[in-house]
Design a protein around this nucleic acid. Structure first.
Lengths: 153, 153
DNA sequence: TCTTCCATGTCAGGATTTTGACATAGGGGA
DNA sequence: TCCCCTATGTCAAAATCCTGACATGGAAGA
């Protein structure tokens, strides 16, 4: 169709705020802020919630796997897990008979806390999705993924 | 309480990785990582680069204004500015005759450093944009903005 | 004028995250 | 078997960022 792009229009924009990176950062910052505020009322931080959510869907994940799933380092996830463990929201065996990875699991308290916080987070998700035409949702998701893939995410 | 949701169609996905928030976080993390790696070769951090870029387009911005423009707190931007000032990349008057805001400006060294780093960052931007159909770029930008606006960004 | 309010710059403290490093466990070849 | 390579968990130190707080400058209104 209109492959009529004589000049490189991707982003010759003279204004940084027109760049994809800037918009992405802005949206991510807004999301982070909203989640941070909402989760504070449930006594959770964003990484903690992400960890619980991941463990709920895929029980038995190890520290390193959780770190990759939440886009932080192993070391960061390690302190997050300790916090959750001290709060009694997850459990981890002290040793394992095979390998080094220690599988983590939600406790009953962890499940309850997650379910309580989830509604608040879902409301935020809903707010985001309702902010633009729904027919574009699928495209948005795939485009975000493609960008991440292209950057080696 | 809440009447049970008749239908949660936006994203009834059972998998967290299907959520907009997750994708957004993933893309932002990938971008951050790529920029971090590229800018390190130029002796800059991501916030430092963002600050220089903003100052190049809008000279005279104050600490608080830069903070809002880069989505960090005033305090964080303050240490960033000190670092840039110590490195001789920006200049800030010690006092002002009117008000409290201290207008910052790029030095010649700052401009040179920015121009050098800019090419690396633009290459990343290009990689992102080329990862999806070009006709969707405008929609993506506006949708990201709408999400941020909806969340109070 | 004076008083209230908001924005700004800055300090102090703590929380979070990262970088760097090390030892261990397991798999795959030579 | 032995060696190499990768992955994992963990420690230590530093960097980064945020929350809370305070004092100042200016504007708006009584």
């Amino acid at each position: 169709m209109e492959d009529r792009t004589p000049v490189p229009p991707p982003h010759p924009a003279d204004d940084v705020t027109e760049h994809v990176g800037y918009r992405l950062k802005r949206a991510a910052a807004a999301l982070r802020g909203a989640m941070d505020k909402a989760l504070r009322e449930h006594g959770l931080t964003v990484p903690q919630y992400a960890c619980l959510e991941l463990l709920d869907q895929r029980p038995g994940l190890s520290n390193a796997e959780l770190a990759r799933g939440t886009f932080v380092t192993r070391q960061s996830m390690n302190v997050v897990l300790r916090g959750l463990q001290d709060a009694g929201l997850i459990s981890r065996p002290a040793t394992t008979d095979h390998g080094r990875a220690l599988p983590a699991h939600l406790t009953e308290r962890g499940r309850e806390r997650l379910h309580a916080a989830r509604s608040a987070v879902y409301a935020i998700e809903r707010t985001m999705v309702d902010a633009f035409p729904q027919r574009r949702l699928a495209a948005l998701l795939t485009d975000l993924d493609r960008m991440a893939d292209a950057l080696g995410g």
